[in-house]
Amino acid sequence: MATPPRSLRSWERVDPEEFSRRVAGKLGDAAASVDVRNGTIHVTLPAGDVVGAARVLKEDPELDCAYFNFLSAVDWEAEGFEVLVALHSLTYGNTVIAHVRLPAESPSMASLTALYGGANWHERECAEMFGIDFDGHPNLVKLYLPEDFEGYPLRRSFKLASRRYKAWPGAKDEEEAAAGGPLR
């Protein structure tokens, strides 16, 4: 094993506010905004250079976000997609979540697989669930769904067939009962 990553050698907990200042300082213009919500640092990145910013987060010794937590997306319908990349800095005890806005039509982003090996499966899942293309991914094939599955299930526009035909019988509120089933 080569030099073990910083995370293995010593841990020094840093307050989230202080860590967010460090992140903002290191990323500079690369980040559109950095703020702390509920103890996690949220960074908004433009879609152009996600890999560069992620590289700073991972390789800078004062940030050391070497732990790849997850990558997923949120479908905001007309406003497009929001890709989330969650990283932990075990050395400094903080979580950084990067938000990347993508357009609703043909959303595409650079792949993080060169930087984090763990991004491989997460990006495959995101691609098949939302239809987001990850440029540079070695093997962007379906992960969960059968080969012949059509559609992108986690998009809001994908409606569950069973609910179209049969509303959930246990409607909880008067509004739902009056509307003849769940409101969403």
């Binding site: 094993m1 080569a2 073990p4 990553p5 995370s7 293995l8 841990w11 070497a66 732990y67 790849f68 937590n69 997850f70 075990l90 984090y116 090996g117 763990g118």
Partner: peptide, 23 residues
């Protein structure tokens, strides 16, 4: 399991702690 590889992939729990990382 190499610890650096484990961090890269987001491994957690007893498997990560068996590599010596006290997360």
């Amino acid at each position: 399991l190499d610890p650096a590889l484990a961090l890269d992939h987001g491994v957690s729990g007893p498997i990560l702690r068996a590599c010596g990382i006290p997360y």
